[in-house]
Design a protein around this nucleic acid. Structure first.
Lengths: 239, 239
DNA sequence: TGTAGACCTTTCGTCAGACAAAAGCATCAA
DNA sequence: TTGATGCTTTTGTCTGACGAAAGGTCTACA
C-alpha cells in the first residue's frame, strides 16, 4: 500500500507556527499584501525565539504564501503564487469554510483525473494491481450497510485504480486530492441508498478494466465521478 | 496574464543550500534512507553557520524529501513521500537526466489535464478568456516559420485554454507541469514541419470552444496532446 | 523651490555559543 | 539473557550580536 501525501508535522515549536500562520494566511485573516508581524514580535507573541519563527517563515516561503525582504518584512503573496497543490495549503483551505466554488473545483479535479486514470489502469500488464482494485470492490460490496466502512473502501477503490495506472505524478496528485477531500468532511455523505446506487457503476468500471477495454473504463469512470459531483451539488442545495 | 508556479529563490545562503541538497537527493546522489551530514558538518562544508543549514533543511522537510530526528540525523525519505508536484522537486527531477519513463509520465499528465480543461473552457460564459485563446492561436499562425517563437505561443495557447476553465487547482497544476516541461528541454523540438501539421488541430480545438461544443473540444484536444506524446516517443527512438 | 546625495532606521540574513531534549548505545547488575 | 542506568550524539531552541538591504528623512546645492 502506497502512503498518502504527507502534511508538515505539527510538532515542535516551528511546526505549530507554520500551521498557525499558514491557516491565517489561507483563510484571509492575514490579507494579501499585508506584512506579517516582525520576527521579533512573532517571537514574543508565541513565546519563542527568533530562530523558530524564521524556520517557520522559511517553510511558508517554500509554499509560496509569503516573501521576505529586508526592511520591508514578510509579505503575504497573492493567491496565484500559492502552492495550491501542497497538502498543507489544501488542507488549510478545505477545512476552514471552503466556498461552494472551491468544492466544485475539487469535484472537477476528480473528473479530470480519474477517467484517464481508469484508462491507464485498463492498459496495465501487471495483474496484481488489478487484483487490488477487485479486492477493494468486494469490500465495498460487503460493507454496503456500514456507511463509514464503505467510504474507506470506496476511497481505496479509486486509489487502487490510480495506482494501477503506474504514473508517479498522477498517484501523487490523487493522494493530494484525498487530503483535500478528507479536510472537506461534508463531501462524504453517509447515505446507504446512494451507495447502493453507485455500486453497480463501480462494478462496471472494474469489469472494463479487467477486460482491458480502455475507452469503456474511462467512460464509465467518468459516469461515476460526475455522478459524485452532482450529488455534492444537490446536497448543498437541499441543506 | 497569470503567473507561473514559482520556484524557491536561489539567492541567499540557505537558498543555495536548498537547491544543492535538493538536487542531490532527487537525483539519487544522496540515496534514500541515508542521513545527510550533520548540521555542523554541512555548515563547515558550505562555509555557513548552523542557522542557515537548519533553515534549508526545514524547507526540504516541507517538500517531503527528508525528515529530521534528534540524535538520528536528517534522513532522506523514500520517493513516495516526496512532493512530486512541487515546482522545485519537479525541476530537479526533469533537468537532471529524466528517464524515459519520467518523460512518458509527464506527457501522460498533459493527456489527463488538457482535454478536460478544453471541455471546461467550452462551457465558460466569459468571452474575454476565449479571446485570449484566439489571440494565442493567431500568434501561432503568424510565427509558423520561427520555431522558437512558435513554442512560446503554443504554450500560451494551452495555458489560455486551462485558464478559461476557471478552476484554480487545474490552473496551478498546469503551471507546475510547465515548469517540468521547461526543465526537460528535449520535449520542445523545434520542427517547422511538425508545427504546420499541428496548427489545424489547434484551430479545430479553438473552433469547438468558440462553438461551445464541450465534447468536441475535449476530443479534439485529446488528439493534440496524444499526438505530442507520440512525437516525444518517436524523437527518442530516432536519436 | 526642486532635486540629488548623504545619513539614519528598520527588518531580515547570518553567525556564534550555549543549553535542553530525544534517542541510540554501551555498560553493568540481577 | 534481560533490564535498567548513564553516556553521547544530534537536532531543537534561545540569546545576543553584527551585517546588509531598502525605505525614509534631511541637508546642501543649483
Amino acid at each position: 500500500m502506497t502512503e498518502r501525501a504527507t502534511a508538515y508535522r505539527r510538532d515542535g515549536l516551528h511546526g505549530q507556527l507554520v500551521h498557525d500562520l499558514g491557516r491565517q494566511i489561507v483563510t484571509g485573516e492575514l490579507p494579501v499584501g499585508a506584512p506579517l508581524p516582525t520576527e521579533e514580535q512573532l517571537g514574543k507573541v508565541y513565546g519563542s525565539g527568533r530562530s523558530a519563527v524564521r524556520e517557520a517563515t522559511k517553510v511558508l516561503v517554500a509554499k509560496g504564501l509569503v516573501v521576505s525582504k529586508r526592511k520591508v518584512g514578510t509579505i503575504v503573496q497573492p493567491e496565484t503564487a500559492w502552492s495550491l497543490l501542497d497538502p498543507d495549503v489544501l488542507a488549510w483551505r478545505y477545512e476552514n469554510d471552503p466556498t461552494a466554488l472551491h468544492l466544485d473545483h475539487l469535484a472537477e479535479m476528480r473528473v479530470v483525473l480519474e477517467p484517464e486514470a481508469a484508462r491507464l489502469a485498463a492498459r496495465t500488464k501487471d495483474r496484481t494491481v488489478v487484483r487490488a482494485i477487485q479486492e477493494s470492490y468486494h469490500r465495498m460490496e460487503e460493507t454496503l450497510d456500514d456507511p463509514d466502512a464503505f467510504i474507506v473502501h470506496d476511497l481505496a477503490f479509486h486509489r487502487a485504480v490510480v495506482e494501477a495506472g503506474g504514473n508517479d505524478l498522477l498517484v501523487h496528485l490523487h493522494s493530494v486530492m484525498e487530503v483535500a477531500l478528507a479536510a472537506a468532511r461534508q463531501v462524504h455523505t453517509r447515505n446507504v441508498r446512494r451507495n447502493k446506487r453507485t455500486l453497480p457503476a463501480h462494478r462496471a468500471v472494474l469489469d472494463a478494466i479487467v477486460a482491458k477495454d480502455a475507452d469503456q473504463a474511462s467512460a464509465l469512470m467518468r459516469e461515476v465521478v460526475t455522478g459524485a459531483a452532482h450529488d455534492i451539488r444537490r446536497d448543498r442545495r437541499t441543506r
